[in-house]
């Protein structure tokens, strides 16, 4: 079904075919180059930043230097806590809301659903001025909770899970109720297990979003004990700090490493999850 290889192509076109093929690989190479270059800088001594020598000595010094130059261990811990708290809260809150939309009829259902979908467009970071003020009022500035709270009820998650719940046959629902399960029981025993792949997909999207998120955490945190990796990296690599490029590369790769490794190991699932999350 590819448009690249329709079966009726003539042999005479083989030259253009080759050009096309080379073009594809060049594009691929171009796209990966920045990362390969970053890896090159990170694993070689600084004098090889712009000198390419296949036999350049390998070193881990840049990683060690980056690790000891800033409290990255703490930043890793903070990010880990942040994404876990957000993920668990999102699963619970979005599941409950999605269940209400998928299986109940109530007044104003459509209007409320539209109001929720508004968040797809107006992400919490767009309203950062007011949200900061709210956090001040709640006394939550510079806490993990403040970083996570605005994202816990996610329109994207509610939408995704609602779609999944809608495909669950009503008969299964009824059968469970006949056996005496209450609303929550039915939800936990019928709906949630059937939507497992959607939870995986949503979880991956959510984790990578919040691992990478910078602006809101940058605004709401101001101490080492709460800063996530992204903010820590931003503080560490500010141009006026005069840190060496090879060390910055090492730090940048280090902060992305868990995601990077997870992606390389589970490439298929990752891509499929993003695809699932994207299909309406």
């Amino acid at each position: 079904m590819s448009t690249i290889a329709l079966p009726h192509q003539e042999r005479g076109a083989s030259f253009w075919r080759l050009v096309e093929l080379v073009g594809c690989y060049v594009l691929g190479l171009l796209w990966i180059m920045p990362l390969l270059y970053a890896v090159w800088m990170a694993i070689h001594p600084p004098e090889y930043e712009v000198r390419f020598d296949l036999f350049a000595p390998l070193t881990l010094d840049n990683f060690i230097a980056a690790w000891s130059a800033a409290p990255f261990a703490r930043y890793f811990f903070n990010t880990f806590v942040l994404i876990s708290v957000i993920l668990v809260a999102q699963f619970v809150i979005c599941t409950l809301a999605a269940y209400a939309f998928a299986r109940y009829e109530f007044k104003g259902k459509t209007v409320i659903f539209m109001l929720i979908l508004l968040q797809l467009m107006v992400m919490p970071e767009v309203l950062l001025v007011e949200n900061y003020r709210t956090m001040v009022r709640l006394g939550l500035v510079d806490t993990v909770l403040a970083m996570g709270l605005p994202y816990m009820a996610s329109a994207f998650g509610i939408f995704l899970l609602r779609q999944a719940f809608l495909t669950v046959p009503k008969e299964l629902d009824d059968a469970a109720r006949v056996e005496g399960a209450g609303s929550v029981g039915v939800l936990l025993r019928v709906y949630v297990p059937l939507a497992r792949p959607v939870y995986v997909a949503y979880g991956l999207v959510s984790v990578s979003y919040h691992w990478n998120n910078l602006l809101w955490p940058l605004v709401i945190t101001n101490s080492v004990s709460t800063r996530p990796l992204t903010v820590g990296l931003q503080v560490f690599a500010s141009p006026d700090q005069g840190v060496q490029w090879s060390i910055i590369s090492a730090a940048a790769l280090m902060t992305s490493a868990p995601l990077l490794i997870a992606f390389l190991l589970f490439q298929r699932q990752f891509v499929q999850s993003f695809m699932r999350a994207g299909i309406k």
Binding site: L214, L229, T230, L233, T255, L259, L260, F263
Partner: peptide
């Protein structure tokens, strides 16, 4: 790959 990595990195 570029999509998975943090913009800040």
């Amino acid at each position: 790959l570029p999509t998975v990595l943090p913009m800040i990195a």
